[in-house]
Amino acid sequence: MKIAWKEMRKNKTKFLILGSIIFLVSFLTFIISGLANGLSQDNAALIKDLPEGQFYLNENAKQTYNLSKIDTGLQEEIVKEHPQATAFSVQMGFVNDVEDKQHSVAFLTSTESDVFEDVREGEILLDSSLKEDGIRVGDVLTNNQFSGEFTVKGFVDKKKYSHAPVAYINITNYQEMYRVMEMQTIFIPGKDAPAYNGLESFSNKTFLNAIPSYSAEQMSLNMIIWFLVVISGMLFAIFFYMMNVQKIGLYGILKAIGMKTIALFKMIWFQMIAITLVALSLSIGLSQFFNFVAPEGMPFHLSLDTVLMLSAVFLIVGFVGATISGFQIKKIEPLQAIQQGEM
């Protein structure tokens, strides 16, 4: 594809401009994707890290997890039937540290289980992000609604819920603080999804959407990502369309001297792929670097897998865009082009 390459070499500016735009769009896409992923971790790492299984909410809870209460009798029955099953509750709240500073946390309690930490009465286990706030093992924390005190027993990594660090507490303490006997949710790990009267079941994925703000946040970010991808495809289509319009005469001549239409398509494809590959490698490199240097507290997480997947999408979309613009080449009559050139 020498001719394609030579055209790029001779018209550097044109192709450089397109390349820069594709670079900027793809880089922005990667950054937003990293942000979406980071925010999603920040919002629901607690749930996302659970093994595949089934979640149950009260049927009357309108699929909103805060409104759900599970009948104690039914809960006992289920846990007896499935030893793996665990009932748990999460509530947003605060702890006061030794200096009486407030920290927002998501209190989590559960019946005995493999998937959540077990904590004894009066003890608390915190997400490690609270270490940065100066809380240490052995510190004593208090809560306005709780008569006793919590002793920090340790930290766990990356357990976030609704953008707050998770605080594991004992079920008795929880029941006192929130003045409820019932748990909100039952989780049964594994593939089977038994149905229970009065309960609605959710997969891990659908349960995430029951977390307030989770789906709204992810949906808008994902929408931005797909818009950017579509925009980049349209950029290719428009760019090559305009280039092709300028070159109709040339294509006509090339066809007249016997060049195959497919060779002209290959020319466009080569240019599109060359530009995209260069632009993508730049933005992959830069976004991975950003991933590396992003400040600790910033919810940013960009895996190479995601980047490569998005890159493949960019290539496909660019290919489609360039090809659509190429359809006009198919229609060019060599004779017309020759005569137009002489007008």
């Binding site: 001719i3 005469g249 001549i253 090339l254 007249a256 016997g258 002489e342």
Partner: peptide, 19 residues
């Protein structure tokens, strides 16, 4: 046939500008 057996010269030279 056009590609291998015919040659063309037109009123304008119609050369490829970037070659």
């Amino acid at each position: 046939v056009r590609a291998s057996e015919f040659g063309f010269v037109f009123q304008s030279s119609h050369l490829v500008p970037f070659l």
